[in-house]
Computed example of a mutant assay.
Amino acid sequence: MSSISATRFSSLRWQPVPCAAATSAAYVTLYALSNQLTSHRTDVGAGVFDWERSIPFIGWTIVPYLSIIVFFVGAFFVDTDREALRRHVLRLAIVLLVSLLCYAAFPLRYTFERPRTEGFIGVLFELLGHCDMPYNRAPSLHIGVLVLLWARFAPVLRGVWGTALRIWFALIAVSVLTTYQHHVLDVPAGVAVGILALLLTAPANHRYERPYRAASSSPWW
Rank of each mutant, 00 (worst) to 15 (best):
A215P: 08
A215D: 12
A192T: 00
G194K: 01
N205E: 13
R207K: 08
Y212K: 06
P211C: 08
S218A: 15
P219I: 05
E209C: 09
L199S: 09
A197W: 00
R207M: 03
R213G: 15
G194Q: 08
A197S: 07
A189H: 01
P188R: 08
A215K: 10
L199M: 10
Y208A: 00
P203L: 01
P211R: 00
H206S: 12
S218M: 10
P211M: 10
L200C: 10
V191C: 10
G190S: 04
A214D: 13
A204G: 05
Y212A: 15
N205F: 07
P203F: 04
R207W: 06
A202C: 11
A189I: 02
L196P: 03
A189K: 08
P219Q: 07
A214Q: 13
I195T: 12
R213P: 04
S216I: 10
W220M: 11
G194R: 02
P203S: 01
S216L: 11
A189F: 02
R213E: 07
P188W: 01
W220R: 00
L196K: 00
H206T: 12
A197Q: 01
L198N: 04
L198Y: 03
S217H: 10
S218D: 11
A202T: 10
A215R: 09
V187A: 12
L200N: 03
R210T: 08
A204M: 03
R210F: 13
N205K: 10
I195P: 03
R210N: 12
N205Y: 06
W220F: 14
A204R: 15
Y208M: 05
S216K: 13
